[in-house]
């Protein structure tokens, strides 16, 4: 059996989704954003929502999401993605509206918009990338930074007496009556990627069926901000991040 015999269109089992275009992504090597972008593109394609999907991009590393996934995008001011998504969904209730936000965007400057959109039960899906750091601006401390974690603004590690505790905003969202589906996932192994994909599929389905706000946190790595290789960053995430941010479903009222 030679390589030429195997490489035939009928044997193809996996290919990059068509919606993820040929532009080179600006993300650092090994960044979790790329995996989540790919999952979103795959899902929109599989669910046949190419013409119906509206994404709301954040300020942060994912600010250029519109360059990579060929659907309609709106670029929101820093932290305001859930507010923009509220308007988009109320005006176009038959469309899939989702926000794609990082932890600096969603859990710091956008806390108000996030909490209130979730509390109103807007029929949007919120995809929250939590890597515990401000990646784009140079690795400063974020609300989700772990205790003792070194960042460029906490060079001796985050101190609870000075900087407070890491914020588990997903747990807060799970307490709100407006949310229908709240889950925390990761994308560091093939199995985790499949679970994360299933979670985002559920969130998109909830948005289309108008069941309330779905909140999917993806615990991610920032190998540049954490100053590690992508491989070491995944390991570090498993050892440290999962302790504070345990994976699993926090709430599901759609059964």
């Amino acid at each position: 059996m030679t390589r030429q015999d195997i490489i035939k269109p009928e044997n193809l089992v996996y290919e990059k989704p068509r919606l993820l275009n040929e532009n080179h992504m600006h993300y650092c090597p090994g960044c979790s954003h790329g995996v989540v972008h790919r999952i979103i593109a795959e899902l929109i394609e599989e669910m046949g929502l190419e013409e119906k999907a509206i994404g709301v991009a954040p300020v942060g590393c994912a600010v250029f999401a519109y360059k990579y996934i060929d659907i309609d995008w709106i670029e929101a001011a820093h932290g305001r993605a859930p507010a923009i998504a509220t308007a988009a969904k109320r005006l176009n209730p038959e469309n899939l509206v989702f926000t794609y936000q990082g932890d600096g965007d969603l859990a710091a400057i956008g806390t108000c918009e996030t909490i209130h959109a979730a509390n109103r039960g807007e029929n949007i899906a919120i995809i929250f990338i939590n890597n515990g750091i401000y990646g784009m601006t140079g690795g400063q401390m974020a609300p989700t930074t772990l205790e003792g974690m070194k960042t460029s603004t906490t060079p001796y590690g985050r101190r609870v007496d000075l900087n407070g505790y890491p914020l588990r905003i997903t747990d807060i969202a799970a307490q709100l009556d407006g949310t229908c589906y709240v889950t925390r996932q990761a994308v560091h192994t093939p199995a985790a990627v499949r679970k994360a994909k299933a979670a985002i599929r559920q969130a998109f389905k909830n948005s289309m069926e108008g069941r309330g706000t779905s909140f999917v946190e993806i615990v991610s790595t920032c190998s540049s901000g954490w100053k590690m290789t992508p491989e070491a960053a995944n390991k570090w995430m498993e050892e440290h991040m999962f302790e504070k941010y345990p994976l699993g479903e926090l709430k599901n009222t759609v059964k």
């Binding site: 059996m1 015999d5 195997i6 490489i7 035939k8 044997n11 193809l12 089992v13 996996y14 290919e15 990059k16 989704p17 993820l20 080179h24 992504m25 993300y27 090597p29 090994g30 960044c31 979790s32 954003h33 790329g34 995996v35 790919r38 994308v187 560091h188 192994t189 093939p190 990627v193 499949r194």
Partner: peptide, 16 residues
């Protein structure tokens, strides 16, 4: 598995 974790979608997989 390689294609599932690839952040840039560089991998095409064939199986026979």
């Amino acid at each position: 598995s390689c294609a599932a974790v690839c952040p840039d979608g560089c991998i095409r997989v064939y199986r026979m």
